[in-house]
């Protein structure tokens, strides 16, 4: 089970004109793992993530997501992944239930499924009383948890999280990670980009990107050992300044 590969990237290259955003990215992501994708702003994280989500076509490279080819099977990829961005992406003028129904609807869930799943979801998050409240009236932490739960409502193989914890306090951030662990437990692969180095330590494995290349890829423990550092901050600084 550990080694069932869900994302493969061999020599992923993406160029914008002369600018090389992704330079020969090689990595594999396994089923049920939490894969951290780290890097400074502009290091090429977002570009790589967009390619994996089927939003961008790579310049070259052999890339498979969930067993599907990113060049020819983007439709199938889109159906088997979930996505959440740092903006949480809920509709502020829709209620909690309406947001759940909308997102499950566009992923093609049946009405019966939507009813069952939305009830489960609201129960789990303790949001049942807020079922008919507008999103704009919810605190940030709840929005974030709801956005994540909605991103995996269609039971995707992989969920992509683009800096999901921006602007949230540490306690909420911790609670949010509990949800992520929970999802990974249920066999959903989590691919997460983040700025927070303490968060990086929650991941099973992390890759660190510098200037379009992956400079390091290993478990947080091994990376700290290799770079002779007590925490991920140190590892990151050593790599970024090299």
């Amino acid at each position: 089970m550990e080694n069932q590969v869900v994302i493969t990237s061999k020599n992923m290259i993406k160029k914008f004109g002369d600018f090389v955003a992704n330079d020969h990215l090689n990595f594999e992501v396994y089923k049920g793992e939490i894969f951290g994708f780290l890097g400074a702003n502009g290091a090429g994280k977002t570009t790589a993530m967009k390619i994996l989500c089927g939003l961008l076509t790579p310049t070259s490279g052999e890339i498979f997501v969930g067993g599907f080819n990113v060049y020819t099977e983007t439709e199938k990829i889109k159906r088997s992944i979930g996505y959440m961005s740092q903006k949480f992406s809920l509709y502020e003028d829709l209620t909690v239930f309406e947001n759940i129904r909308f997102y499950s609807g566009i992923y093609g869930l049946s009405d019966a499924d939507i009813k069952m799943k939305s009830n489960n979801l609201m129960d789990k998050l303790g949001l049942s009383a807020q079922r008919n409240s507008l999103i704009s009236s919810l605190p940030l932490g709840w929005k974030q948890k709801l956005a994540f739960s909605i991103a995996i409502i269609h039971d995707p193989q992989i969920v992509f999280l683009d800096e999901p914890t921006g602007g949230v306090d540490p306690i909420t951030r911790r609670q949010f990670w509990d949800l992520i662990y929970d999802a990974a437990h249920n066999g959903i692969t989590v691919f997460v980009t983040t700025h927070y180095m303490d968060e990086a330590e929650y991941c099973d494995r992390i890759s660190i990107m510098v200037d379009g290349r992956i400079e390091a890829l290993d478990t947080p423990f091994n990376l700290m050992k290799t770079y002779n550092s007590e925490n991920m901050d140190g590892v990151f600084l050593k790599l970024a300044r090299a």
């Binding site: 939003l55 159906r79 996505y83 961005s85 740092q86 992406s89 509709y91 502020e92």
Partner: peptide
């Protein structure tokens, strides 16, 4: 602006 376009583009729509 709200970032929801990204989500829509990632969805099977």
């Amino acid at each position: 602006e709200s970032g929801t376009m990204e989500i829509l583009l990632v969805s099977p729509l």
